[in-house]
């Protein structure tokens, strides 16, 4: 590995680490704000949680206030909040009483399973469609892909999920509408999320294939007499790949947002489902834990995208 490559690698990792730190700070600040504006006296609530509602009086609440420093100015409390986060003490869920870290770890598996299945589906549908339309722009495959992607853009994940439930589950009875643990349960959520992503995938693949096919180096390779498939493998694939992977970052946003929506729609027990329920119950430690986890997952996958781009295209990203 040469010097320039190492420098690019270090820059990517450094930038993404910084991004992860800033986003953690942001989430912590928002959650702290959320706690501060919840109605009621926090000291009373914590005291009630400790001693039971029948045994709380002003003296017990004052003792809690003294002990936890709830009377301190807000910025000191915020510093304490951040300190806990820095030690990865995410606290306990206010609803179930379990440690947030353990609860989230429990949900993470289901989320990853759903995400992997949907991405595989999106690629399986989007890649062939995009290739077919990019290699023959204006043809029937191209028009089909255009219509398909516009239709899916106008159909947000929860509407698509709703329609799939009504069609496949209610009318035809092919798949269970909700649940987890049995074979068919993954079908509808993965179909919803995967189909939703495949429209954009097809468009991105189509545009990057077209850009490469029309490039001078590609036309030159064709005109010097190479067979079309050889030109495609040798000159096309890598150049198409780098654009498609670079745009995967945009798709990751859709994936994470989709996970939250689709999981709550199908009662799929993942992180997104846990997050929405935590918001129902104003379970702040859970809200913070789930949001942080999703944000870190997002940064991590973006880093992977950057590294993959670097691996495909050794020249590194163009400096903007």
């Amino acid at each position: 590995m040469d010097r320039a490559r190492q420098r690019a690698l270090a820059r990517i990792c450094g930038q993404r680490l910084l991004q992860a730190a800033i986003v953690s700070l942001l989430v912590a600040a928002l959650c702290f704000l959320l706690v501060q504006q919840l109605p009621g006296d926090m000291a009373f609530r914590i005291a009630a949680g400790r001693y039971g509602y029948d045994y709380v009086d002003a003296a017990a609440a004052d003792a809690v206030r003294q002990e936890l420093g709830l009377a301190r100015p807000a910025w000191q409390q915020f510093a304490g909040w951040l300190g806990q986060l820095a030690q990865l003490q995410l606290g306990q869920s206010l609803v179930s009483g379990g440690a947030v870290l353990a609860e989230i770890a429990h949900h993470l598996g289901a989320t990853l399973q759903l995400a992997a299945a949907s991405v595989a589906l999106a690629l399986g549908v989007g890649l062939p469609l995009g290739l077919a339309s990019g290699l023959a722009p204006g043809g029937w495959a191209d028009r089909l892909t255009l219509g398909y992607s516009v239709l899916l853009r106008a159909l947000p994940p929860f509407l698509l999920g709703l329609m799939l439930i009504l069609a496949l589950s209610v009318q035809l009875g092919w798949a269970p509408a909700a649940g987890h643990g049995e074979g068919g349960n993954l079908l509808l959520p993965a179909l919803t999320l995967g189909l939703g992503l495949s429209g954009l995938t097809a468009r991105i693949v189509r545009d990057s294939v077209l850009a490469v096919v029309r490039a001078d180096y590609y036309r030159f390779a064709r005109s010097k007499g190479l067979a079309p498939w050889r030109v495609f493998l040798r000159h096309g694939l890598r150049n198409i790949g780098v654009t498609v992977v670079a745009y995967a970052g945009v798709q990751l946003i859709l994936l994470i947002e989709g996970v939250v929506v689709v999981e709550s729609l199908f009662a799929w027990p993942g992180v997104g489902h846990a997050l929405v329920h935590a918001i129902f119950w104003r379970d702040v430690p859970m809200i913070q834990g789930c949001t942080l986890l999703l944000a870190w997952l997002f940064v991590l996958m973006n880093t992977a995208t950057d590294l993959l781009c670097l691996a495909i295209d050794p020249r590194g990203p163009a400096e903007s």
Binding site: I22, L26, V27, L34, E257, R282, T291, L294, A295, F298
Partner: peptide
Amino acid sequence: RGLADGVLALPGLLIVLIFSAM
């Protein structure tokens, strides 16, 4: 720019969800 990068790492729906809790 640092702030913008941080916000970018948070898919929009998550921000809106936290605010909807408030």
